[in-house]
């Protein structure tokens, strides 16, 4: 938390001073019956462009353009600054006129996804670490297939060794579905452990019907299912941190386009 506060302190301080100075200056200008809307509009557009440059910086990692962590700090603070400027510019939470309302809607969505993403990025690393395993997102489906094949092998071995089909039937009716692909994603996304609970319930349920020599196979299946649950957590959380960018970035691009048109229209009519 200290590190986060330290990272944001400088950009936040500078932004605060800037907004305070601007507000004071705008108030003076307003008292003199001057036009404040156009100035705040241009500044807001410039800030939005500046925020958009972060995406460009990610593609330019081969050149020394300061640390990406500093860029993100400035981006986070700049986003809040943009919200303050937006309200200064519109003088309202919800503007009149359908085009302006569309622009405001996009702007709010970008802001909300930005804040949500920032929060997500602060929370998910710890949750991922708590799983005790590390998986690369793109390899998770392979890992799940590996677990499924191992589980199927265990079931075959059990049937062969014990001559009983109970575990095989149990697997086909329950765990086969579970091992097919990542499951219980929304639960894990909220920090829940529904997947592990579900596995426990299913395994406890069938344990009563198994012979003593089948129990060790069930225990192996349970361990594999637990490992699958951890892979699901990684899939869900890592997927969310990638997915939110696919929402935030296109929305941000849309805001810039719509705001540019708004700027052009306003400038043309102001002539």
């Amino acid at each position: 938390m200290k590190a986060l506060a330290r990272a944001l302190a400088v950009p936040a301080g500078i932004s605060l001073l800037f907004v305070a100075g601007l507000a004071l200056w705008l108030h003076q200008r307003w008292l003199q019956l001057g036009d404040t809307g156009r100035i705040t509009g241009y500044i807001l557009f410039a800030v939005m462009l500046g925020l958009g440059v972060l995406n460009l910086r990610k593609r330019l990692s081969m050149v020394p353009l300061a640390r990406a962590a500093d860029w993100v700090s400035w981006h986070a603070v700049g986003g809040v600054l943009a919200l303050a400027l937006f309200w200064l510019h519109t003088n309202t939470l919800w503007p009149a006129g359908p085009y302006e309302q569309f622009l405001a809607l996009l702007f709010y969505l970008v802001t909300i996804t930005g804040i949500a993403g920032y929060a997500l990025q602060k929370v998910t690393p710890k949750w991922l670490t708590q799983t005790g395993i590390e998986l690369i997102f793109e390899r998770i489906p392979i890992e799940i297939v590996r677990l499924r094949l191992t589980a199927e092998r265990v079931v075959y071995d059990c049937c062969e060794a014990t001559g009983s089909e109970t575990l095989g039937r149990f697997y086909l009716e329950t765990l086969d579905w579970y091992f097919r692909k990542p499951r219980f994603l929304t639960s894990t996304l909220g920090g829940g452990r529904r997947g592990q609970r579900w596995v426990r319930q299913q395994c406890d349920g069938v344990a009563r019907a198994l012979q003593a020599n089948e129990i060790s196979y069930l225990e192996t299946l349970r361990q594999l299912a637990d490992a699958k649950a951890l892979a699901d957590i990684h899939y869900s959380l890592q997927g969310a941190t990638k997915l939110w960018l696919l929402v935030h970035v296109p929305l941000a691009a849309a805001v810039l386009v719509v705001a540019l048109w708004h700027l052009l229209v306003v400038s043309v009519y102001a002539l």
Binding site: A7, S61, V63, P64, L65, R67, A68, A69, V72
Partner: peptide, 13 residues
């Protein structure tokens, strides 16, 4: 130029 790109590129330090 600028040293290891991996360090510079990490958005979360």
């Amino acid at each position: 130029p600028g040293g290891p790109a991996c360090v510079r590129a990490c958005p979360h330090d």
